Computed example of a mutant assay.
Amino acid sequence: MSTLSPFEIQEIDQTVLMWLDELQKATMAAMNQHLDVATKHDARDLVTNVDKSNEQTINKYIRKFDPDAQIVSEEGFGDKPISMAGHVWFVDPIDGTMNFYKQHDDFAIMIALYIDNQPILGWIMDVVNNIVYHGGPQMGVFANQLRLYPPENDALNQGIVLLSGARLLYGMFGYDEIAKSALGYRVIGAAGPSFIRVLRGQAVGYSSKMMSWDFAAGQVLAKTLGLIVSDIDGKQLDMLSSNIVLVATNRAHRDILALHRS
């Protein structure tokens, strides 16, 4: 893997932050206007004109900034890489489209850069509050300009766990037992806001079925803060496929794997 200098890391980070600043303004303006809403796989899987517009904008910027890179993005304007060789960017233009459309809250814009399958930088923008959680192993993790530090290593029974509502409802992957064993449980309905709560120590863990654009940025930031990221069986995530993702403190991760296996 080609090693990026601290200057190059800083340049990439600041460039993406400029993109996100522009997208935040456009997304907030569009949210209060008429939205063109369609369904994808089912009635709960929504896509809006803002999802598509944001993705086209981000992908255009990436192709100009890093022309040899490949892009994995949700709405079909990216590439379909068969390996993680070289620069691979992940783009989720509106994470939590249902929340965006119905709640006007708890949604995010997410971008991540991996080089030769190694996490380099991630960005999760809390659009409504205009906070970008960003960074990576070479620079640490920040909420805008405020450095974040590793959260307390609490066990599952000491904190709140965030879970996929649909899979909790049907008792899949041991989620029902995980919810019962936690101090409390919540369903947010979006990956980015859920990752943010774990990064900030507001939850000890989060698990859901996700595509790579859902977890790529969160994995960069979580691992940088010493959190454990794996699939529900404790294995490394496949960056080019869907996974049952688990991010948690070390102790909560151990507790959740034990419950899932039992």
Rank of each mutant, 00 (worst) to 15 (best):
K209N: 14
L23Q: 11
D105P: 15
A222P: 01
L121T: 07
D154T: 09
V50I: 11
V204E: 00
D42N: 13
F100W: 12
Q56Y: 05
V245P: 02
E55N: 14
F100P: 10
E8A: 15
P151I: 06
F100G: 15
E177F: 11
S2Q: 12
W123C: 02
A38R: 14
A222N: 03
Y175V: 01
V245Y: 00
G96M: 04
G140Y: 06
K40D: 08
W213N: 02
S181K: 13
F142E: 03
D68K: 15
S242R: 02
K223A: 02
S2N: 12
L183S: 15
G184S: 14
V16E: 03
L163Y: 12
I228P: 05
M1A: 11
L146T: 15
L17Y: 02
N117M: 05
N32P: 01
L148N: 01
Q33S: 08
G234H: 00
F7R: 14
I62T: 05
L246P: 02
H41V: 03
A217M: 05
H87M: 05
K180S: 08
A69M: 07
M28H: 07
V50E: 09
D68V: 05
Q236T: 10
Q10L: 13
S262L: 06
S194E: 08
L227Q: 07
G189H: 07
V127F: 03
F173E: 10
D154V: 00
N153A: 04
I256G: 03
L163R: 10
V37L: 05
Q138G: 06
G86I: 00
D116V: 09
V247M: 09
L148E: 06
P151A: 05
R197D: 00
V161P: 00
D106Q: 13
D42F: 04
H87S: 12
I82S: 11
R261N: 09
N49E: 12
D105M: 11
N250D: 09
M84C: 01
P81A: 01
R44T: 13
A143L: 09
S83F: 03
D126M: 10
Y61V: 06
D116H: 09
L113C: 11
G218F: 08
E152I: 05
L4H: 09
G140T: 02
N59I: 12
Q145S: 15
N243C: 10
G171S: 15
V16P: 00
A217V: 08
S207L: 05
E177Q: 14
I196F: 03
I196C: 05
H104R: 15
I188R: 10
I111K: 10
T249W: 03
K209H: 15
